[in-house]
Amino acid sequence: MSGGNVAINLCVLLWARPGAEAALAAYEDKVLALFDDHGCTLLQRVRTDGADGAPTEVQIITVPSQAALDAYLADERRTALAAERDAAVARTDIHRVELV
């Protein structure tokens, strides 16, 4: 991902491991709480029942820059939760999007 000081909009799709839907939500609650420290904004967060292969959770996020996104991803409070994430999250897809 590139883009100096240009705001970035992301659509994040998350699939829970079987039976770990609540654990995915709990993990996301923790890491999304770090957004303010990096200037990131959660615009929308929704959940599905996961039927027919749908993602468990979808998030629309705005980050102020690539540097802010990199800092969030490297945040030690976030990376310390890697085992919790691995136990709850089966798959993550991230797409750059335009808000319309």
Rank of each mutant, 00 (worst) to 15 (best):
M1W: 05
M1Y: 05
M1G: 15
M1E: 12
M1Q: 08
M1V: 14
G3L: 12
G3C: 07
N5C: 01
V6G: 06
V6Q: 15
A7E: 15
I8R: 14
N9P: 01
L10A: 12
V12A: 14
L13H: 07
L13N: 04
L14E: 01
W15H: 12
P18T: 11
G19F: 03
G19Y: 07
A20L: 06
A20T: 08
E21M: 01
A22R: 11
L24F: 05
A25S: 10
A26S: 12
Y27S: 03
D29H: 09
K30F: 00
V31R: 11
A33G: 12
A33I: 09
L34S: 11
L34I: 11
D36N: 10
D37I: 03
D37N: 15
H38G: 05
G39T: 04
C40P: 00
T41N: 12
Q44P: 03
Q44V: 05
R45G: 10
R45D: 04
R45W: 04
R47F: 05
A51S: 14
A51F: 13
A51E: 13
G53C: 09
A54K: 14
P55R: 06
T56H: 02
T56E: 01
E57G: 08
Q59Y: 02
I60T: 14
I61H: 06
T62K: 15
V63W: 11
V63L: 14
A67H: 07
A67I: 06
A68V: 08
D70E: 15
D70G: 08
D70C: 00
D70T: 15
A71T: 08
L73M: 14
L73Q: 13
A74V: 06
A74Y: 00
D75C: 06
R78W: 01
A80F: 10
L81E: 00
L81Q: 11
A83W: 02
E84A: 14
E84N: 04
R85Y: 06
A88F: 03
R91N: 07
T92H: 02
T92F: 01
I94M: 10
H95K: 08
R96F: 03
R96N: 08
V97I: 15
V97K: 05
V97L: 13
L99Y: 09
